[in-house]
């Protein structure tokens, strides 16, 4: 009986409408949270797993040593590596392909890498312009790596203490 009565009062005094409008009114004067992507971007966690990159050492030497652990651990079989002995006797890849259509961005490759060569960057806004585009070749991966060296180093440094 009392429940029915209070419901009746609420509906006649437009109490719920007022509650809603109160929020609207508040947000009307509050600072906007909409981000004008791509001009503006939200902050991203250092652990974000986006587009892959292959890193180099500060002296320019590529880090990857073709151990193929990433290829072995990849649950989606997205990575294909071919290796050989480079002229200086070191073990290097001749091919390092990641098929982004297959990749599920689990980050296992990064976890498995003993030399921190393959990493996932914070880049997530990319598009392919051809059918071959989904294949990240060694050349493209290294390019992504060198273009974003600073960001990668920074995020890896930030995350390092949790590993």
């Amino acid at each position: 009986m009392i429940k029915k009565l209070s419901k009746l009062v609420k509906s006649f005094t437009l109490s719920e409408l007022r509650t809603g409008l109160k929020i609207t009114a508040k947000e009307l004067v509050n600072k906007k949270i909409t981000v004008q992507f791509p001009e503006e971007r939200t902050p991203i966690s250092p652990r974000f797993r986006g587009l892959h990159a292959l890193r180099r050492y500060p002296n320019g030497e590529e880090r990857c040593i073709a151990c193929k652990l990433c290829e072995a651990v990849c649950p989606a079989n997205a990575i294909t590596i071919e290796s050989e002995m480079r002229d200086d006797g070191t073990r290097r890849t001749t091919m390092y392909d990641i098929d982004l259509f297959k990749c599920i961005f689990c980050g296992f490759c990064e976890e498995a890498c003993p030399v921190d060569a393959i990493v996932e960057t914070q880049i997530f806004d990319y598009a392919f312009e051809s059918r071959q585009g989904s294949i990240m070749t060694k050349k493209r991966l290294l390019e992504v790596g060198s273009e974003n060296t600073q960001v990668i180093n920074q995020t890896k440094f930030e995350d390092a203490k949790y590993k």
């Binding site: 040593i65 151990c67 652990l69």
Partner: peptide, 8 residues
Amino acid sequence: DCPICDQG
């Protein structure tokens, strides 16, 4: 050096 070892 297991990562660069062929026996790995």
